[in-house]
Amino acid sequence: MSKYLWRFASSAGFIIQCSCVAHCFFHYVGDLVLCSGPSMEPTIFSNDIILTEHVTPKLQQIQIGDIVISKCPYNPEQNICKRVKGLPGDKIHTNYGRTEIVPVGHVWLEGDNSTNSTDSRNYGAVPQGLIKSRAIYKIYPFMNISSLNR
């Protein structure tokens, strides 16, 4: 009896260890994201799968032109995929000819499809703490695998 118990405990431990390694990998190294919505056309279409890395945002190395995945500022359970258009201190021309300066610790995000995108022009600059990852490759559909680097 104790032999079975021991076997059960050791396999449970192995599963826990594997899931912890997986958690750390997906949390700190990189993961795959399925995109939906038209806001990043023509770069990324709905149902495209992109490969992202989490190291650059953790090291605060985000630059202008990067495509980033961020938590939505007004709904933290939703993610948004946008391009960085401004860093702290940059002057941004928003709608109606207004200019805004990106505050410290924030970034200005806009979708590539500027006519059909809800982005910083609607809700203002986004705190850098909400950025989760940076897109590096589009890997699906296989017909047009491409790099998304700046």
Binding site: I16, S19, H23, Y28
Partner: peptide, 13 residues
């Protein structure tokens, strides 16, 4: 080496 990921996961969750 196996304990570090477990520790990080506990801290995260």
């Amino acid at each position: 080496l196996l304990g570090i990921p477990v520790g990080i996961t506990v801290i995260d969750l």
